[in-house]
Design a protein around this nucleic acid. Sequence first.
DNA 1: TGACTTGGTGTTCGATGGACACTATGTTGG
DNA 2: CCAACATAGTGTCCATCGAACACCAAGTCA
Lengths: 229, 229
Amino acid sequence: MSHTYEYPRPALTVDCVVFGMDEGDLKVLLIQRGLEPFVGKWALPGGFVRMEESLDEAARRELEEEAGIRPSHMEQLYTFGEPGRDPRGRVVTVAYFALVKLSDHRVHASTDAREAAWFSVWDTPKLAFDHAEILGTALQRLKGKVRYQPIGFELLPPKFTLTQLQRLYEIILERTLDKRNFRKKILSMDLLEELDEVEQDVSHRAARLYRFDHKKYKQLEKAGFNFEL
Amino acid sequence: MSHTYEYPRPALTVDCVVFGMDEGDLKVLLIQRGLEPFVGKWALPGGFVRMEESLDEAARRELEEEAGIRPSHMEQLYTFGEPGRDPRGRVVTVAYFALVKLSDHRVHASTDAREAAWFSVWDTPKLAFDHAEILGTALQRLKGKVRYQPIGFELLPPKFTLTQLQRLYEIILERTLDKRNFRKKILSMDLLEELDEVEQDVSHRAARLYRFDHKKYKQLEKAGFNFEL
DNA sequence: TGACTTGGTGTTCGATGGACACTATGTTGG
DNA sequence: CCAACATAGTGTCCATCGAACACCAAGTCA
């Protein structure tokens, strides 16, 4: 069955930039393409938007289908619609930005027929379409947003050490932070729950574990509090 | 002539939220619809994206066509694609956010057949489609961005007084600012050129005029300077 | 010329951000 | 068991910034 319109229409897709943090490395999820164009090339996961689903739903569905992933944070990033960006014709893509806890997703490397894999964001293969530009935009967004919203926690396991948290910020912001100042600041916000547990299986003094208190954050946010680091 | 595709496609439009500042009131440009659906209702200017133009181009074209306006600042805002947002069927719209100097655009009220007019953003008529939501998103964006990027100047005439500038910020941020602190801060950035001119036609002491120095801002920006108010 | 209207100007104080170094605790290997 | 190692954890000082705050100056108008 085919569909006919009075005027030509661009095709509409979603593409997702999914970030994960892997022990000192910021990773992005890529899919090896199984179809033309760019067969065999790596690309962002994504696909066509269906008529009955919202854009957000489309993005979630594609991630689930192509990589078995359900991100803990997802937001719309930007819409890319340059006429020449897809060799098949006019394709406009709504890009999404997502964060996952890699601890939840290490297993599923390739659920679908296509290969899915995590790459260091600083060292990706050449990407299909304009996906390198989309990735760049997503990195900018991550860098800009991580300081004003507590989204960094979505990249860590539920229980984490302050050093892990600091490393995360250092990696994303691409600069070193002072340990004492960092701890002072983050603890003074009163958003971290100090647990009665410490790291396991480390060959040195174990660090205390903390948990991010989502509830408390929502409360403080309503009261006009602004996260800032 | 008609166009046929194997799979159904949403229609793609752009819609523009254009802000202007009118002596103590923040205005938004609206168009009275001449066609179904929502004939006679007010809506954001916008229309269908053509196959050979980029999204940005489409937004600029529609503004030019429907209101004879060429904004001094324009950026993509957000893409709205809920399946039910347009009664004609699936229509996805890429919303844009634009600022104009009303001093340049007071004349053209209705270039096209349709009526175009400026409304106070705090007191608009009921809008067609989900345009009220889009306007709300644009207002949030304006509020958030005006503090970190010198876009407020795009709403003022090229020469302005410090009081005008302060009023602008007060209106957008919806709070009063301290005169001395405001002036200290903005002047210390060294982005305003103090002119040898004063206001005309006021029935009290005339205020000095200033001009925003775009060149200097670009330089400072490259050097790592961050505008913040 | 006096009343009115808006323009224009500095200081103080508390809070915040950045620089900076040492002791504590647990592990490992000889 | 103890010495070496690795990372955890902690406080002070100073410069800067933001917030609060009030009066004189200049021009207009009746």
